[in-house]
Structures are given as structure tokens and as C-alpha cells.
């Protein structure tokens, strides 16, 4: 077996091929038509095939050509989880809890993604942002949001 000289590009090429494949698969029911009478599936088919082809070339090239050797930043699973989780939590908490508690919890929670976090500061920041966001978005910009949601109103 030949060694892969550029692992990053090999994975990159592979993921493009997979992505193209997914687009191909989920668009399989779309009508393709022909070049003169293009259906809704013509472009999807064309683009997915192109993506697979580019991925293939990338993967093939990565076997032959050496890549740059810039080191990767260390993987930080805690930050990743918190930063991606914050919007998810926001989305699901907004309606039941209301804007202020959601902003407070998201801010305070996501602060712990940093290694320089201090609990008191995180809580204070959360409270400050909750107040600021509530005034700005519900009072001044009148977004249709409640400051306190139904789970917290009496």
C-alpha cells in the first residue's frame, strides 16, 4: 500500500465525495430533464457529480503530493461542546423560559469554554447581558419575544 503524503487533504477529498454522494442520494427523486428542458434535478445532479469528482482528484493528489506541515491547534472538546451547545440551548429555551433567563444561562454557561473563566465574572456578565438584551430587543426593537416565558410567569 502506498502511503498518504497529505492526510488532511485525503480526509478533505473524502468528505467532499461523501457530501456529493449525500446530495446525489437525497436528490435522487428529482426530475433531471435534459440540457434543453432542465428539470429540478438537473443542477443537483450536475453539482453533486462535480463535487465527487473534485473530491476524488483531491484524494488522489494527496497520495502523491506532500502537504504543508503546519501543526493543528490542539483539539478542545469542552470548548467545542459548549460553543455549539449554546445556540442549541438558546433555541430550545427561548420560548419556554423567555429572553432574560435564556441569555443569562447561555452567557454564564458558555463562559466556561474559556480557560480564563471566573465564576463571579461569568455570572455578572450573564446578568448584565440579560438586562441589556431584554431592554434592547423587547422594548426598543420590539421583537416578538417575552422577557420571562410561560414556564416562569405566575
Amino acid at each position: 500500500m502506498v502511503g498518504i503524503r497529505n492526510g488532511r487533504d485525503f480526509v478533505g477529498g473524502l468528505s467532499m465525495m461523501v457530501t456529493g454522494g449525500l446530495f446525489l442520494w437525497f436528490g435522487r427523486d428529482l426530475e433531471v430533464g435534459n440540457s434543453f428542458q432542465m428539470g429540478s434535478g438537473y443542477f443537483p445532479r450536475l453539482l453533486s457529480s462535480l463535487l465527487i469528482l473534485i473530491g476524488l482528484i483531491m484524494a488522489a493528489k494527496s497520495v502523491v503530493v506532500e502537504g504543508d506541515h503546519d501543526a493543528d491547534t490542539p483539539f478542545n472538546p469542552k470548548a467545542l461542546l459548549l460553543v455549539i451547545g449554546a445556540p442549541l440551548f438558546f433555541a430550545f429555551a427561548l420560548t419556554p423560559l423567555g429572553l432574560a433567563p435564556t441569555v443569562f444561562l447561555v452567557t454564564a454557561g458558555v463562559s466556561f469554554a474559556s480557560i480564563y473563566v471566573r465564576s463571579v465574572r461569568a455570572l455578572a456578565l450573564g446578568a448584565g447581558l440579560a438586562l441589556f438584551a431584554s431592554i434592547l430587543f423587547t422594548r426598543l426593537l420590539s421583537l416578538p419575544l417575552e422577557v420571562f416565558g410561560p414556564w416562569l410567569s405566575f
Binding site: 438558546f90 458558555v110 456578565l125 447581558l129 438584551a133
Partner: peptide, 8 residues
């Protein structure tokens, strides 16, 4: 954290 909240 502020950027994330405002993005949301």
C-alpha cells in the same frame, strides 16, 4: 460569550 448571545 456576548458575541454568541448576540449571534443567537
Amino acid at each position: 460569550p456576548a458575541i454568541i448571545v448576540f449571534c443567537c
